[in-house]
């Protein structure tokens, strides 16, 4: 895969300077062409989720185009670090809008963000968790619609990778970028593991329990837990490095 070189960085910096001055479409196209590897890289990372690679690449390129149009070199951030969250954000939106782990009514999908926002707002105003009818009245919808939207949260947990995303910062180094991309892929790959291994990884890395605490909880030895964690991580690493045939 193409990697950014120092010469590329210098060319890009100069190209964005010229683009800001001229808004030349040909130059814009050339920048997109030269940085297309960023889109390929982003799309590849999502290729294990069952969507056609060409579709993912097209979505990733849309993200790349947006990044090129919005990039401001005066901010002092490397273009790759700026473009990556935009590309991943575009891919995440694609999965949010086009793929769900279970069928969820369109209305529930559309209402989900509004219901979440209303819940947060009313929780602050009331000083307690709101009731369903209070959210329904606030949004002028039915109680059933609120319940469906709440259930839609369970069917699909998405979070923003946009630069403006709450609680997220723009990655400024290659390592941070890789960390975000890999985390996205690992979320998808976890589904391939047996339920027991998945639970053990959850207890170890999300609940941060020790191996002996996990062993106690699931009724096995610490040594066995250690082996299961090692084999699960090896399996994830192996899947992470799988080449994408269609790329």
């Amino acid at each position: 895969m193409h990697e950014s070189t120092e010469a590329d960085d210098e060319w890009l910096d100069d190209a964005f300077r010229r683009l800001a001055e001229t808004r030349d479409d040909a130059l814009r196209d050339e920048i997109v062409e030269r940085t297309n590897w960023l889109a390929v890289r982003g799309a590849r990372r999502f290729a294990s989720r069952g969507e056609p690679f060409d579709d993912l690449l097209q979505v990733a390129r849309m993200g790349l185009l947006k990044a090129v149009d919005r990039f401001d070199r005066s901010v002092g951030v490397h273009f790759g670090a700026y473009a990556t969250p935009t590309i991943l954000g575009e891919l995440r939106r694609y999965f949010r809008d086009h793929t769900w782990s279970v069928h969820v009514p369109r209305r529930a999908k559309d209402l989900r963000p509004a219901v979440n926002e209303a819940t947060d707002q009313l929780s602050k105003e009331l000083g307690r968790s709101p009731q369903v009818h209070e959210i329904a009245q606030h949004l002028h919808i039915t109680d059933d619609a609120v319940l469906e939207a709440m259930e839609a949260n369970s069917a699909y947990r998405s979070y923003s990778l946009d630069p403006q995303g709450v609680g997220r910062s723009v990655p400024t180094t290659k390592n941070e970028f890789d960390g975000i991309v890999d985390r996205e892929v690992v979320i998808g790959l976890l589904d391939r593991l047996p339920a027991r291994e998945r639970k053990i990884l959850y207890l170890r890395f999300f609940e941060e329990l020790s191996q002996s605490q996990i062993a106690e909880q699931i009724g096995t030895s610490q040594v066995h837990v250690g082996r299961l964690i090692s084999s699960s991580l090896a399996s994830l690493r192996s899947a992470l490095d799988e080449p994408i045939a269609s790329a």
């Binding site: 819940t119 307690r128 968790s129 709101p130 009731q131 369903v132 009818h133 959210i135 109680d143 059933d144 609120v146 319940l147 709440m150 259930e151």
Partner: peptide
């Protein structure tokens, strides 16, 4: 969730 909502449980509950 429908039953709980009808009986006045909050969204967190």
């Amino acid at each position: 969730s429908g039953v709980a909502s009808l009986c006045g449980f909050s969204v967190d509950e």
